[in-house]
Deep mutational scan, measured.
Amino acid sequence: MAAGGDHGSPDSYRSPLASRYASPEMCFVFSDRYKFRTWRQLWLWLAEAEQTLGLPITDEQIQEMKSNLENIDFKMAAEEEKRLRHDVMAHVHTFGHCCPKAAGIIHLGATSCYVGDNTDLIILRNALDLLLPKLARVISRLADFAKERASLPTLGFTHFQPAQLTTVGKRCCLWIQDLCMDLQNLKRVRDDLRFRGVKGTTGTQASFLQLFEGDDHKVEQLDKMVTEKAGFKRAFIITGQTYTRKVDIEVLSVLASLGASVHKICTDIRLLANLKEMEEPFEKQQIGSSAMPYKRNPMRSERCCSLARHLMTLVMDPLQTASVQWFERTLDDSANRRICLAEAFLTADTILNTLQNISEGLVVYPKVIERRIRQELPFMATENIIMAMVKAGGSRQDCHEKIRVLSQQAASVVKQEGGDNDLIERIQVDAYFSPIHSQLDHLLDPSSFTGRASQQVQRFLEEEVYPLLKPYESVMKVKAELCL
């Protein structure tokens, strides 16, 4: 049975990233139509530049190519590739079939990587351009969430054990800070992308030097003109047959890092959902379990974690691919890159769409948070109580021993009897502590235990987050809708 299948058929496997999760716009960027249309555009740009620099290419040939950029006979191309065992030459023939007058000058002087690699770089750039505003929107939604809850005390956790208090907004800023680093890295790697350009079979530009009869300047002009037509500021000066596969490492490393950030955020949300302090959106008709109707599973956060793990592992592909590119190139890269580049971007696209949807509907339960604080705060307040007693004339050592005994009794009630923490009640009825009984409410005010959390939130948002989001103001209103 021949390899390949009808990918629109229910009898043929289709990647869930495309069929179930990723956005239509990201799927289109990695589609065959987008790819092969870009090949034709690159052939047109090459012909236009070659004509401008004096090669015998007519206006009629150029116009014929322009008129057929979208006229792609995919069936013919597939048949040609089956016959020739070469995808680029299959599309040269297919393009030439609908451009008979231009057929002889299509791909003039070029090698397969002229269309293959340059198209990949265009796709990487455009895919990054799709991700950047999506990530900015996630940051914006979380920034709104953090600002609104900047002063809401909550129990902090280290080692997932109760620690000092923080605020809900401050905790959210930990998430935002990681995503801001990801946004900066995505922008950097996007701006650092260079075009492969017009380089020939081993990167020496020998074929173009021959076409222009040894004119170095025209060869350099050709490279520059096509690079500018493709919208790049610069091209690699040095290439082998391909652009260095280190570029793929750079791009997928940034995406993998984004995956790590999203995994951490969504894990926190899942843990908070278990504590009943916070939940992701839950639709009115949504079913959490087929057997347990009360369940409210954090399905979206779980999906993000599941896909983020996949995204983090994909960076190993370009690392290994770059390491086995012998001399000017081997074909070890080809099949692998067809999979890992598309999957990385479709996965990143999915987790950003999902995280935006989550961040637009996060639900906080202040009463649950308050109750958990009441359970733990008495123990945390013991040092403040000791200091207040010393100020009232008591002995630190005597007070410490009193607190120690009462704390152990209260802990026994919590752990052995399943009761509430009654340390404060014990202190309130103990005559030894009568000098500070009137101060206990103040000493137990949760806001006095959150330090500068709310001020940190305000400063972080104003100095770091809002300036970073400013270039994306025009796209901030787009909502994230999930079908599944």
Results as ranks from 00 to 15, higher is better:
F74G: 06
P446A: 01
D333K: 04
G393T: 05
D59I: 02
A230S: 14
D191K: 04
V414G: 09
R85A: 03
E360S: 00
L440R: 05
S253A: 07
L311I: 11
R296N: 02
K224N: 00
L69Y: 00
L271T: 08
E64C: 13
I287Y: 15
Q51M: 05
V413S: 13
I369Y: 12
P162H: 10
E148I: 06
Y114N: 07
I62H: 00
D129R: 03
L443G: 14
K415T: 12
D420V: 15
K75P: 04
M299P: 07
D32K: 13
A136R: 13
E60D: 09
V262I: 04
R296V: 10
A77M: 14
S15F: 07
V115R: 06
I427F: 04
R404M: 15
K218M: 06
P10Y: 15
R37E: 07
Q416F: 14
C483R: 12
L423F: 15
C27V: 11
H97Y: 00
S112T: 14
D317L: 15
T154R: 03
L319H: 14
Q241M: 03
L130M: 10
S253P: 10
Q177T: 08
L406R: 03
R37L: 13
V465L: 00
A102P: 02
N68R: 08
P366V: 01
G259C: 15
K284W: 13
A256R: 06
T167A: 03
L319W: 10
Q325M: 11
G393S: 02
A2W: 04
E79R: 15
S306A: 05
Y13E: 03
T227A: 11
F449C: 05
C340G: 08
R309P: 07
N357H: 06
I373N: 15
Y114W: 05
N357W: 13
V414A: 15
L362H: 14
G288S: 13
E148Y: 09
L443P: 01
T119S: 04
R33I: 04
F433W: 06
S15R: 10
A103G: 05
T450F: 06
C483F: 10
Q458F: 01
F460A: 00
K199L: 02
L124K: 10
K479L: 14
D32Q: 06
S306H: 01
E280M: 15
V368C: 11
D216S: 02
F232E: 02
L165G: 11
Y13I: 13
K367V: 10
T321P: 07
Q439G: 07
A49M: 13
H217P: 12
L271A: 15
S434M: 15
Q210I: 07
L46V: 11
K367F: 15
I62F: 07
G288F: 04
L272F: 12
V168M: 02
I386W: 14
L258W: 05
S438H: 07
R40W: 03
G109H: 13
Q161V: 01
P133A: 06
L355G: 03
F195P: 12
R40T: 11
T354V: 13
Q320C: 14
E481V: 07
D215Y: 12
L461V: 13
G451I: 11
I122F: 14
V368L: 07
K199C: 10
P366H: 07
C113K: 03
K415E: 15
I106R: 04
K367T: 14
W39M: 15
G4M: 11
S454I: 08
C266E: 12
L355V: 15
M389V: 03
Q375C: 13
S323P: 09
V88T: 10
E80V: 12
L211M: 12
E277V: 01
L461T: 05
E376L: 08
V457G: 14
L311N: 03
S289Y: 02
A103V: 03
C266F: 01
S9K: 11
R270L: 10
F282K: 01
I385G: 08
A344E: 06
Y13D: 00
P446W: 00
P133K: 04
L341P: 14
H97N: 08
D441M: 06
A291C: 04
L423M: 14
A410P: 01
S253W: 00
K199G: 00
P298I: 15
